[in-house]
Amino acid sequence: MTKLLEVSGLTAHYGDFQALFGIDMTVEAGETVAIIGSNGAGKSTFLRSLTGLHSTRGQDIRFCDQPIAGMAADQIHKRGLAMVPEGRRLFRSLSVEENLLIGAAGKRKGPWSLAEVYSLFPDLKAKKNNPGTALSGGQQQMVAIGRALMSNPTLLLCDEISLGLAPKVIKDIYEAVPLIRERGTAILVVEQDVGQALAVADRIYCFMEGRVSLTGTPDSLSREQIANAYFGIGEAA
């Protein structure tokens, strides 16, 4: 397998506050990887760093064998890294279809098109002319995922896509993940819902206080190990 994303020793600061302390991570082509961890563990900061929203100048991040650290967000996006941001962040003055089309502004070639997104999320087609923000939470999340897919990414980052949604809706959304994989897109999800993460991911990274506290495949990890890595309890014992 070829390495798609290689991060080594990534740090991040907000002023005097250090949020990440040397994160190492790899994502291989076509893989689904989940990052779990409690609030404030640095998961979102990690994604923001990957996408260029948080500066990573001088650090070591390679994407498709090219260094991308310190690049502007739109340049990183052009190389095939798209994100579904936390809280969906749909453009409120754009219709559903316009939101999707914005995603295609970079004009990358690939399997995804309006028709493909509508076949992945059939609910959206009927509402394509509604303002994105008039939809239900789950449908908004579908628009946000579709918008990211429209750029035909090789790696899709999803930040807390189940946050604030009903279990049934979360299930619907996560049903799309294997369909996205089928088209060759690797996925990196950040998820607080550990069960959901274990169900979809090939590999798990657990973050705690800005460090990777545990990593492995879902079936190789015990519940206890995960609880320790997640909450940091029982470490000394």
């Binding site: 929203l53 739109d74 941001p85 003055s93 990211a148 750029s151």
Partner: peptide, 22 residues
């Protein structure tokens, strides 16, 4: 498309670069 990008940028300039907008 230009108008779409202008409206999107007006709505949420921070997120637009994630869609490849400059």
């Amino acid at each position: 498309p230009l108008g779409r990008m202008l409206r999107a940028t007006s709505d949420d300039p921070e997120i637009v670069p994630l869609m490849g907008g400059r």
